[in-house]
Structure formats: C-alpha cells, structure tokens
Design a protein around this nucleic acid. Structure first.
Lengths: 244, 244, 244, 244
DNA sequence: TATGAATGAGGATTCATTCAT
DNA sequence: GATGAATGAATCCTCATTCAT
C-alpha cells in the first residue's frame, strides 16, 4: 500500500464545524435547491452543490430528502402546489364578483409566482419534463391538473352566477394559462440571453385580465367590469388602456 | 466543419454497396440529431443514439462533428441560421412595400420554422440555455442578434421609406418576436402536457401581422396595407377575421 | 470494552424514568446485534438498526462498542467463546469416563450452540470470514484454536487414561467438529432454500457420538460404552440404532 | 479553481494501451469475477477490481454486463447451470445401471464442481443469499430446483427400473446433496482458516456413493452394486474400504 | 473512411463514525 | 450518559470521447 504518510501528520482537516440546526435545515436546503435548479437546471445541478450552498455536507442533504428527485418534488410542493391551494381557498371564500375574483387570482399569481423565484420552477418543469418522465408525471398530477381545475372552478362560478357567458370552460382556462407561462419562459430563457427592451409583465397580466373579461362577460355584466381594475394598494399599475 | 466532399460520389466506383450516399452522411446525422435533441433534450440524448438513428456507428459521428456540442451548433446553423440569412437576403432584395415585406417574412418564418421540426430547436435553446452557457452564447451570437438585426433592418426600412412611423425599433422587434416564441413554446411544451383546445398558429401569425402593421403605418400608408394580405398561392389561409 | 458500571444503579436516584436498566444496555445491544447479524449478515446490518432494535440511539451503540467489528467480536465472545470456556471447565473437573465426558460435551454443544441463536454466529463466520480478514483472524484465535484445543485435551484424556486407542488426536478432533458445522450450515443456509425433508440434528449428534466412541474405544473399554447413552431426562432420544 | 498545472505538462498518462479482443473479453471478465467473488465475496468485490484483474477498465466491464448482479448471474450460469445441463444430459442418455449412473454423476460433480473454482460459487451463494434476495431467487430457480430435479429424475429412474427401493425421492435427493454442500463449505470457509488434517473429499464422495447405494438397492440388485466402483481411467481412487 | 471496443472522469447515494448539545 | 444531526469516504454506474483495426 502507498502509505499516505503526509496525511496523518497535520491537522489538515480543520475540524469541520458542526452546527445543529435541524429545524432550519429543510428550508435552507429547499432554498438552495430552488436557486440552483432554476439557475442550472435539474440534471446539471449536483446534489453536493445544493448541500454546499445550504452550508451542509452531501450526507446531510440525504438526511432530509431521500433523493434528488424527491428534493425537486418538495421544492415544487412548497413553491407551487401551496400557491394553488391558496388560490382554491381564495376562490371558495370570495364574496365579490367573479370578474374581480379572476383579476385578483391572476394578479396574485404574478405576485407570488411570476415575479418570485418560484417562476423558475415552472420554467424548469417545462424544460426538463421530457428528460424525467417521473417528475413530469408528478407535475401534471400535482400542478397542471389542480391549477386547471382551480381556474375551471373560477370560470364556472362566473357562468353559474350569470356573470360570464356560457363558454367552453377548458378553452378559457387554456387561454388564461398560456400567456402566464409565456411570461415565465420569457423571463427565464430570453430575459437571460436576449437584449433590448423586455416586455412589462404586469402590463401583460393586466391586458390579459382586461381581454378575458371583455370576452367572458355577459352584456348585463359589462358595467360591473370596472370593479376588476387593480386595487390601488395592491398593485399600483396605470389603468390599462382599453380600446375605446 | 463537415465539408462533405461531393466529388467522390461520381467517378467509376461500380457498386458502393456498403456505404450508401457518402455525401449524405452529414445531413443524415444532422437530421437524426435534430429529431432526438427536440424529442429528448440535448443532455438526455446520447451521442450513440444519434449515430444509430442516422444508420452509422458512434465513431462516424465524431468523424464529422468533433463533439456533441458542435453537433448541436451545426444543427442550429443549418435549421435556424440559414433561415435568417434567407430573411436578410429577402429584405435586401425586396422591391415592394415594407408592409408586404414584413408580412412575407413572418409568414415565411412560420412556414420554415414554426411548423417544421426546426421550431423544436428554439424550444431546445430556451430550455437548455442555462445548462450550457457555451451553447447559449453561441445562440445569442448566431441567432438572437442576427435575427433581431434583420428585423430591425426591416423596420428601419419602413421608417426610412416613410411607410412606418418613427417608432423605437428595438421595441417593435421585440413585439414581433415575442408571439412567435410563444407559439413555439406552446407547441413543444404545453401541447404535450396541457389539455383543452389548442390555438391556431396561423391565425396568431396573421393577427400579429395585422396588429403590427396597424400600429406601425403612417396615416398616408394605411391604404397600402391591403397589399399585405396573404398571397393566395403562398399561404392559402382563410382571410383572418378582423374586428370590424 | 463495555465494563458496565453496576454501581450507579443503586443509590438514591428516585425515578430513573428515561433510562430503564442502564446496566442492561450492553446486553441488549449484543442481543440485537446477534439477531441482526445472523438474520442479515454482518455487512448488510447497519449499525443504526442494531441500536434501534436495542431501543437506543446510534450514538449510544458507539458508547459501548467502538466499532461494528468490535461489536461483532463481543457477540462472538459472549456467545461462543464463553461456551468453550465452559467446555474446558467441564473437561478439567469431570470425574467419570471420557466416553461419558465426550457424549456430554457434544450434547452440551447442541443444547447451547446448535439449537440456539448462537449457531447463527458460526454460520456468519463461515460466510463472512473471507470478507473480513480481521474478524476471521480473531475467530481463528478465539474460537477455532481454543475449541480444537479443548477437544484435543478431551481426546488426549481418553488416551492417557487408557480408554481410547492411541489415535492421531487432531484427526479425531476434526472428525468430531465436522458434522457439527455441517448441522449449522444446514440449518442456516439450506433450511431456508432447500426443500424436502430436513435431517434431525439430535439424531445426527447421537449417531456421531456413537460412531466416534466405537472408533476410539480400546477393546477393554467397550463395555463401559453404555454409560455414554443419552441421559433420559436430558435428551430423551431413541437409542440410536447401531449396525448389528 | 486550483489550476492543476502539473498534470497537463507531461505525458503522465502513458497512453493506456487499448487492445481489441472482443471475443475473449467476456470470458476473461467472468474468470476474474469468479476469482474475486469467491475470494472476497460479492459485496466486497468492487466492479473496478474485476475489470482491472481482467486487464480492462471499469467501463469495459459494463460493456459486457449491465450490472454487478448480472455479472454474478452470468458467472453462476457458466459455472454451475451448465454443469446441471450436462448432468441431465448424462442421465437421459445413460444406458447402464442406475447405480453406476449415480456414482458417475456424483464423481462428475466433484471433478467439475467440487474441486474446481466453481465450488466457490456455491459457497458464495450460501453466504450472500440473505443479503441479495434477487440473486438468491435466481439461484433457487436456476440451480437449486434444476439440480434437485435432475437428481430426483435419477433416483426415479432407479425405482422405475426396479433397481432402487420405492423410497421417498425428495428425501434421498436431500441426503445426496447435503454432504456435497458441506464439502464445499468446508473447503472455502474452514480450509482457509482451520488447521489440522483436512478431510479427503474424494473419500467422502466415495463413502457417500457407497452409503447411498447400500441404502437404495433392492435385494436383487445388491449384486450389481460392484459396477458402481470408480472407473480406473476416470478417477483412479483406491477402492473405498467397505465394512466387511 | 468506418467501426465499435475501450476508456475514465463524473455524479448519486449509503452508512460507519463523530461530536455538539 | 444519551442523543441524533452531521460528516465524507467509498462505490456503482453512465456516457462522451478516443483510437486500433
């Protein structure tokens, strides 16, 4: 055997300080994972990097999450699934008009997803879905379906209350979701590479709200539409210019 | 660089049984690579798969392309960069109105990019840009900048000739590009997972043409706009319904 | 070494609720280790499992045994080495005929080793000896040599007292040991996989006793042989059928 | 990054010579694997060691066998399963008396299994069965069951032809197999550690043959038994001393 | 040219052991 | 004494790339 004599001589390993912070670990790991997954992609992120960024060692990561995939799933759960739950809650307990509700949901989405790190997860899923069927399936089950169901419920509410025309619900849901996803892709793929002026996401959201409400409202409800303009304290946006 | 010698194809060789179409090899490899990269992502595509699908052995792949990254670059060059060159060519040699030119360019884009396999490359780049900075850089240099420059040139032409209002060119370029990318992402990411009605890409393109031209034209040019309606032989689309 | 201080158990401590039987810890750990090592093998048993089964935490295990190997050694000491010591003791203090002594030793072996969990240790050592040379060496020193020495002493006693023929001692020892090991292997390896009738270990032991005594006795001692038949209260076996 | 300048300077990696010997590789790998698995156990053998001993690199191993477990399975197939097939063949085409056949089969077993490296596989399976349920299952299906079936067929042949008494076949099979396995365990576990005289395997085999035939034969067939004495050209053993 | 056998760096995961509390 | 969070060495396996033929 080569006899690695040089090693045992010094205190070269400077006693890796061991903090005990069980409570905080999971969150720190999820934060680090979110950052890195979004920044480098799932496959390209080594599990050790996540651990290091969270200030722990490789092994500690596996103490809390049994695999890299499970870690991603937990990141998704925390950052996306929870939001959907909140959305469903909002819809079920909301008292006002469905127009107002729809506007609120979309603005909330932007506040909590679009302009936070969480949006990176959406981009991540779109990017890596093909490579990790397992995760894609999980995502469809836990995110796509529930969020579509939530929006469908919302639209149906409008129809049931006579506020919206009897449209095809799934089509409307699709139309609602699509631009949001585009914003996300734009932010995370082209915003990083592209140059020139970026489009204003909030404006896109507002335009989308405006557009959809126009398309959905029954004649009699047109008047109530103004209620859906952004709340001044909430999102102080310039009133979106509507076509005369 | 591939540089496939077309010369050896002729001559006297009576029955090159083993190697059909030597000259075609590079193209077959690029085709296979395009398919697989789009289908499974760049990282998840093993170079041997590409070779196998192209009907050659692993070694042969490396005979033509020194690395997987170079292969991707070549795929991009062939499927995207070339289109831009064609676009630039079209712009520089076009005689008609800029409105017509713009319409033609966008429709061409759809024909050659949007509805072909090449669109997968765009999705691929958006997805994997973060994981492969090298490739992302290449893409920005070879695709993003040139295509933006091309469109800027086009818009500038309209301004210079008094057809368009003196708008901020980069903003317009951005507004032109965004929906196209959206179509692509929608096709390759959401079409697979999402449910419900899909939107009609050609209609989106036409609406976009219509919209942009409306916004760009100087008063005096409004009349000429009709010239930009789709050419019957070129794209036999139903006349897009414009709001009255 | 464990050295469990029995002292702290008494004194005034009114209600040591948390830690039942401090003094018992080492034994509980050894029991758990024996079970698991036999059940799953040495390498496949995680030290945490041992601790958990013993009702303590991982750290506590290392409080008593500095390593997994040391734990195994202690298990062997307690379950095998002690038996040998008892055997030696029996031999040195026995008054009766060597035939009787031999019979008693073999039957004792079966009662204390063969039909208890301890037999699993033998199988374990045979299985893993090659993988853990350290342990193998320990086993040879602490078990193989002493037990062979013990049996050699026994046989020599017979020779010295004129009861046995002047045989080659080591050969006889070997002949004595072999079937016992065979029983153990059969119990722990083949009983699990094999089908069909299992052999009766007690019968094998008795046959072995009978056979060896036949082979060892001097002519003059043949008569005394009947003394070696199993004690009715001890092992109520049918008298083994001897060939006519 | 630490900039490992010293590395790129020299030709420190002396161009690892690459031999192309596809045909021979699998056998070389199986040989190396057999040696190492037997020597160190399955779990304790690193796949790279196998490759190194076969004179190739880690990757090459996986070129031929998709996993370490598959490698072991193949080792078993080649060294054990094949022997069983040969045995079945022998039984089905044998013309002589069943006594002779039985003797031949057992002696063949010793020649091809017991005294070759293949015996190590048997020991290996007995040792590691518990740790690798997958492999244990494979072994039961591919080895235990077929070999028992083979011996059962043999015994049945004897009964059908009136050579053997109408015994319980499975019991006899068990009695046949057991000592052989013991020899194997003895060779690979105790032969390595133990001291003193080792038992003579061939003698054990012959004794076993003798014993079983005695037990099986019908009265009328006793005479034919001498036919089962070892063939001089085959196994030049001293005629086993039978009790007068 | 073409092949495909061979290479080996790289990364996920496990688990014996340590140590702050 | 106990605890269990933290560590990191060790090992399987993948796949881009090389190169002898």
């Amino acid at each position: 055997m080569p006899a690695p004599a040089r090693l045992s001589a010094a205190a070269s390993t400077p006693a890796p300080v061991r903090h005990r912070r069980k409570g905080a670990r999971p969150q720190e790991l999820l934060d680090a994972a979110l950052d890195l997954f979004v920044e480098k992609g799932f496959a390209a992120t080594r599990s050790e990097e996540v651990a290091t960024r969270a200030g722990v060692s490789k092994g500690t990561l596996y103490l809390y999450y049994p695999s890299k995939e499970d870690l991603l799933k937990e990141v998704v759960r925390q950052n996306v699934v929870n939001l959907i739950v909140q959305g469903v809650d909002l819809i079920r307990h909301f008292d006002g008009s469905t127009s107002e509700l729809l506007a609120r949901v979309l603005r909330l989405w932007w506040q909590r997803m679009g302009e936070t790190r969480a949006s990176g997860i959406l981009k991540l899923m779109m990017s890596e879905a093909r490579n990790f069927p397992d995760i894609a399936q999980f995502y469809v089950n836990e995110v796509i379906h529930p969020s579509h169901a939530m929006l469908a419920e919302l639209v149906q509410r409008g129809i049931d209350r006579g506020e919206f025309r009897p449209v095809i619900v799934t089509d409307v849901v699709h139309a609602l979701v699509t631009p949001l996803l585009f914003l996300v892709m734009n932010k995370h793929s082209l915003g990083a590479c592209s140059v020139g002026s970026t489009l204003d996401p909030k404006a896109v959201i507002e335009a989308q709200i405006d557009l959809v409400l126009h398309g959905l409202h029954t004649e009699t409800c047109r008047a109530a539409q103004s209620a859906a303009t952004p709340d001044a304290t909430d999102l102080p946006l310039p009133k979106p210019s509507r076509a005369p």
